[in-house]
C-alpha cells in the first residue's frame, strides 16, 4: 500500500514540477518585452554597452589634454603577451629636477586579449577599459595605437 501511495505521489509531483517549468517558459513566451536579444547594426545609435565591457585599453585625458600616466612601465611588465610598450624620456622640471615622463604609450590592439591585467596593475589608474568594440581596420598597422595624445602632460598639480 505504501508503495502504491509513493508511486501515485511520484506521478503527481512529477506532473506538478513539469507544469511549473512550463509556467516559467510560458511566461517568457507571452511577455516579448523580456527578450534580451538586440538587433546590432540597427540599434547602433542607441546601443549601450555594459559597464564592465572590455572593448580596448584607453587612456582618459582631461580637458587640458592631461593624463595620469607616470610612465612607470608596470602595465608593460604585467602584460602577458607584450601588447604594451612604454617609451619614456627625461625632462627637466622648473625646479631643476630631472624627471622621467611618458613619451609614447604604445598599445598593440591586434595582440591584446583584453585580459584587464594592465588596468588592474596601473598604480595611478591612468589606463581603463574602453567601450568601443568596432575595431575592424584595413591594415594591421592601424591596430598599433599610441594611447597618450600628442602634446599631453601628466596631471601633477592635483597632488601638490
Amino acid at each position: 500500500m505504501k508503495e502504491i501511495i509513493r508511486y501515485l505521489n511520484d506521478i503527481i509531483k512529477g506532473l506538478c514540477t513539469l507544469v511549473k517549468g512550463m509556467a516559467v517558459t510560458g511566461h517568457y513566451f507571452f511577455h516579448p518585452k523580456l527578450i534580451t536579444t538586440q538587433q546590432y547594426p540597427e540599434n547602433r545609435a542607441t546601443l549601450k554597452m555594459q559597464e564592465r565591457f572590455r572593448g580596448e585599453v584607453i587612456m582618459p585625458h582631461d580637458a587640458n589634454n592631461r593624463h595620469k600616466c607616470t610612465g612607470c612601465g608596470i602595465c608593460e611588465m604585467n602584460c602577458p603577451n607584450g601588447s604594451i610598450e612604454i617609451i619614456t624620456r627625461m625632462i627637466e622640471t622648473p625646479e631643476g629636477k630631472k624627471k622621467k615622463v611618458i613619451d609614447k604609450h604604445i598599445y598593440h590592439l591586434g595582440m591584446c586579449t583584453l585580459c584587464n591585467l594592465c588596468v588592474k596593475a596601473c598604480p595611478t589608474g591612468a589606463i581603463v577599459m574602453g567601450q568601443k568594440f568596432e575595431h575592424a581596420v584595413w591594415d594591421r598597422s592601424q591596430l598599433t595605437k599610441v594611447l597618450n595624445q600628442p602634446g599631453s602632460e601628466i596631471m601633477t598639480d592635483e597632488k601638490e
Partner: peptide, 13 residues
C-alpha cells in the same frame, strides 16, 4: 520563432 520566444530571443529576423 517559438523556441526563440521561449528562450527570450528574437529568432530569425
Amino acid at each position: 520563432k517559438v523556441c526563440a520566444l521561449f528562450q527570450q530571443r528574437l529568432g530569425p529576423m
